Computed example of a mutant assay.
Amino acid sequence: MTDHLAATRASYDAAAANYAEFVEGKLEGLPMMRAMLGCFAELVDGPVAEVGCGPGNVTSYLTSLGVQIRGIDLAPRMVEIARAAYPELVFEVGSMTSLALADASLAGVIAWYSIHHLPPAELPGVLAGFHRVLSPGGRLLIGTHAGEVEHRQLSEAYGVPVSYESFIQPPELIVAAIRSAGFTITAELVEPGNKPGRCHLTVFAQKD
């Protein structure tokens, strides 16, 4: 495991309980996010993995919409919390950089606000991994922070010390990377972020 992955894992283990409390009920006040997740639920037909699932709130929401989904997260403590909160669902420890899933085994992959922790040089490999595990015609949904190029090293988040990094890239670069990985972009949405130079990017894509 690389140093930055280890730091991200340790940070989210430390912040897991506070993060779970932070996101609890958040979707109720985010109609655009619910709409995007709802669209994905209607489009996908078959097994899905949420990569970077955190405490499982989005995995659970998609299950309520009829999606057959499992959650995968880098942080073991996040997985423990997700399993306790949603014992009827499957959650596993794993990394998006090396998905332990068979080729063409999924109908859908969702990465919801998790890829911004990847150094830009690692994004193509991760997207290639998403492409590998999807069956032909499989759906990809990515939601992420985007905007002016920025690299942040955080020392505190969710009320605890952390040591993870965040890499912000322009929407067009992220979309281009998804396309270069062998996906057809079927829709994209850019919304204003909560600080200058930032935005929220949602991308729907399909495996060619």
Results as ranks from 00 to 15, higher is better:
190 V>Q: 00
97 T>D: 12
165 E>T: 14
149 V>H: 02
108 G>T: 13
153 Q>A: 08
161 P>T: 10
176 A>S: 13
191 E>W: 02
154 L>Y: 07
123 L>P: 00
101 L>S: 09
88 E>W: 07
168 I>G: 03
87 P>N: 08
166 S>R: 11
162 V>H: 04
91 F>R: 07
91 F>I: 11
178 I>H: 03
114 S>D: 13
116 H>M: 15
127 L>W: 06
173 L>E: 14
163 S>W: 00
143 G>D: 01
116 H>C: 10
148 E>L: 11
133 V>M: 06
175 V>H: 01
161 P>H: 09
70 R>M: 15
129 G>H: 06
88 E>A: 14
90 V>F: 01
166 S>G: 05
86 Y>P: 06
72 I>K: 08
105 S>Q: 11
105 S>Y: 11
131 H>V: 11
184 T>S: 11
102 A>E: 15
94 G>Y: 12
96 M>S: 04
98 S>D: 15
178 I>K: 05
72 I>Y: 05
192 P>E: 01
142 I>S: 01
126 V>Y: 08
194 N>P: 00
92 E>C: 06
141 L>K: 10
74 L>N: 06
159 G>A: 08
185 I>S: 04
125 G>R: 07
162 V>W: 03
102 A>L: 11
196 P>N: 07
115 I>G: 03
197 G>S: 04
156 E>N: 04
111 A>D: 11
111 A>F: 04
153 Q>V: 07
176 A>Q: 14
193 G>E: 06
140 L>P: 00
169 Q>I: 00
124 P>E: 08
136 P>H: 11
190 V>I: 10
119 P>C: 10
156 E>W: 08
199 C>I: 02
129 G>R: 06
110 I>C: 13
101 L>C: 12
110 I>L: 15
96 M>A: 14
112 W>F: 15
138 G>E: 02
132 R>N: 05
184 T>N: 07
172 E>C: 02
108 G>D: 01
154 L>P: 01
197 G>M: 02
98 S>R: 14
167 F>K: 02
127 L>R: 03
115 I>T: 15
86 Y>C: 12
171 P>G: 01
139 R>I: 13
115 I>C: 10
192 P>D: 05
71 G>I: 08
152 R>F: 01
135 S>K: 13
104 A>Q: 13
151 H>L: 09
95 S>P: 03
